[in-house]
C-alpha cells in the first residue's frame, strides 16, 4: 500500500529520466550527455573506490569532506554569532536603533562581491571560504533571532519575574526557547545559502572541494563531470535540507503541537 502510494507520487521521475536519456541520445549534443553517462562518470569520480573506504574514491574522500567541513564550520560560526547578536538586538531596542542601518547594509551586500576582498585578506584556503560563508549567511539567523527575541510573550516574562528567575535562567529558559522556532527558520535558510556560498567560493579561489572539482571538469571540457558535480551538489542540498527538517521536527516538537492545540 505504502509502496503504491510512493510510486503514485513519484511516477514522473522515471518518465523524465527516460525522456532525458532518449532525447540526449538522439540529439547527440556533447553539451548534454545522457543521464546514464553522467551516472557512470559520477561513479567513476566518486564511488568506485575500495570497499574498505565505503567504495568512495580518493577524489571523493579528498573533496566531499572538505566542502562539507566548510559548510558546517561556517554555519556553526554564523549560528553562534548570529543568535548571540540577534538576541541582544531583540532585547535592546536602543542597541538595535544604533546598528540597524549597518545591518541592513551588511545584509544587502551580495556575498560573492566580498570574495575578492576575503581572497586578499586571507589568501586562498578554508579561512577565506568560511569567512565568505559566515558573512553571507549570518543575516537570516541574526534577523530571525532578533525578531523572535523581541516578541517573547509578555506573560512568559512576567512569570519568570514573579518566580524570581535569574538573568541567565531568563535568557536560557525563556527568551531563547521562545525565539527558537524563528531561529530555526533562519538556520534553515542559512544552510541552503551556505551551500551556495561554499560552491561559489570554491569556484573562485580553491584548490580542493566539490566546487573546485566542478571547475576542473569545466576547464578540461569534461561535460559529464560538470553535470555529475551539479547532480552531486543537488543531492547534497537535498540531504542537508531533509536532515535539517527532521532535526527541527524533533527539537521543536513542542512548538508544532502547542500551536495546533491552542
Amino acid at each position: 500500500m505504502r509502496f503504491l502510494r510512493v510510486a503514485g507520487r513519484l511516477w514522473l521521475v522515471p518518465v523524465v529520466l527516460v525522456a532525458w536519456e532518449v532525447a540526449t541520445r538522439t540529439a547527440e549534443d556533447i553539451f548534454f550527455p545522457p543521464p546514464t553517462v553522467i551516472a557512470s562518470r559520477m561513479h567513476e569520480l566518486w564511488f568506485s573506490g575500495p570497499a574498505q573506504h565505503l567504495w568512495l574514491t580518493e577524489g571523493a574522500l579528498e573533496n566531499i569532506p572538505t566542502s562539507l567541513g566548510r559548510i558546517f564550520s561556517g554555519w556553526l560560526l554564523a549560528g553562534v554569532i548570529g543568535i548571540a547578536l540577534g538576541i541582544m538586538l531583540g532585547r535592546s531596542e536602543r542597541f538595535s536603533q544604533f546598528v540597524d542601518p549597518i545591518i541592513q547594509f551588511g545584509r544587502a551586500i551580495p556575498p560573492p562581491a566580498l570574495l575578492p576582498l576575503f581572497l586578499a585578506l586571507f589568501a586562498i584556503g578554508t579561512q577565506m571560504q568560511v569567512a565568505t560563508i559566515v558573512f553571507g549567511i549570518i543575516w537570516p539567523i541574526l534577523l530571525n533571532a532578533s525578531d523572535g527575541a523581541r516578541h517573547v510573550d509578555r506573560l512568559h516574562l512576567e512569570t519568570a519575574s514573579a518566580f524570581g528567575f535569574s538573568r541567565g535562567q531568563r535568557l536560557m529558559r525563556v527568551i531563547l526557547p521562545s525565539a527558537m522556532p524563528k531561529i530555526f527558520a533562519g538556520l534553515r535558510l542559512s544552510l541552503s545559502l551556505a551551500l551556495i556560498l561554499m560552491v561559489i567560493s570554491e569556484l573562485v579561489g580553491s584548490t580542493n572541494g566539490i566546487g573546485f572539482q566542478l571547475l576542473d571538469a569545466q576547464r578540461s571540457y569534461d561535460y559529464p563531470g560538470v553535470w555529475g558535480s551539479i547532480v552531486l551538489l543537488g543531492v547534497l542540498g537535498y540531504v542537508l535540507n531533509t536532515a535539517f527538517l527532521a532535526a527541527e521536527r524533533r527539537i521543536l516538537s513542542w512548538h508544532r503541537t502547542a500551536n495546533q492545540t491552542t
Binding site: 535569574s166 535562567q169 527558537m180
Partner: peptide, 29 residues
Amino acid sequence: DLAVVFQDYSRSLFPWMSVGDNVALPLRR
C-alpha cells in the same frame, strides 16, 4: 517568597518544558 497564578495558564506555562520542569524550575532559586 511570593508566587503568582495567572489567569492565562496556556501562556504562563512554558510550552517547551515538561510539566515537571515547569514546576521545578523556579525552585532553583
